[in-house]
Simulated scan of single mutants.
Amino acid sequence: MKHDLKGFTLVELMVTVAIAAILLTVGVPSLVSLYEGQRANSNISKINSSIQFARSQAVSYGSRVSICPFNGTSCDSDWTNGFSVFIDNGALGSLDSTNGIQDTVLRTVDSFDSNDFITSSLTRYTFNADGLMNLSQTGNIIYCPGDKTNPDSKGFTIGVSGRISTIETSVSCQ
């Protein structure tokens, strides 16, 4: 009597696992690079849209609107901890002693990955009621995912007119 056995032998299973391990070893580094590139695109887009939002709100409200990393009491210099867009009455988060008007936060963006770096030439970008920045406030923001010299780093420049231009050359957060 012949028995029909179904299944895999131990040798077949070991060969399959070995091939899968080789494919993962080759494929995972490129997936990490793909993930970091996608994360860089997403986060630089988030910063870009927040700056465009600040500019449009300045025009809509007919008021000065600023964007900066907000540490709870004032503007900070570390953009990786998140930032706020607010109507800038001069007091950010507290009552201004000169005119008694409190600043109004319009949008907040939570912190980014703790391994990422964001550099900015300014700690605060302010748009006037006409949507323009002060003459001394042109600057750039660069986002680097995971490493200050990551080739997937992205950046843009903000001109006096408030126009945002992508930096086309290679960028780094150093």
Rank of each mutant, 00 (worst) to 15 (best):
M1V: 15
M1Y: 15
K2Y: 13
L5T: 08
K6E: 15
G7T: 14
G7L: 11
T9C: 03
T9F: 02
V11N: 07
V11Y: 06
A18Q: 03
A18T: 08
I19F: 14
A20E: 09
V26G: 08
G27N: 09
G27C: 09
L31H: 11
V32M: 13
E36T: 03
R39S: 13
A40I: 10
S42E: 12
N43W: 14
K46Q: 10
I47M: 11
N48H: 10
A54E: 00
S56F: 05
Q57H: 08
Q57G: 06
Y61F: 08
G62F: 04
S63R: 06
V65F: 04
C68D: 00
C68R: 00
F70N: 04
S74D: 06
S77L: 13
W79L: 03
W79D: 01
T80S: 08
N81G: 14
F83H: 07
G90R: 02
L92D: 02
L92V: 15
L95E: 04
D96N: 06
Q102R: 11
T104P: 04
T104E: 12
L106T: 01
D110E: 05
D110L: 02
F112D: 06
D113C: 09
D116I: 02
T119H: 09
S121F: 09
S121E: 01
T123A: 08
R124Q: 13
R124A: 11
G131E: 07
G131Q: 07
L132V: 00
M133V: 05
M133P: 05
Q137Y: 05
T138A: 07
G139T: 02
N140K: 04
I141H: 05
C144Q: 10
D147L: 10
D147H: 12
K148R: 02
K148H: 03
N150L: 10
G155R: 12
V160N: 09
S161K: 06
G162F: 03
I164Y: 06
T166A: 12
T169G: 11
T169E: 15
C173G: 14
Q174L: 14
Q174G: 15
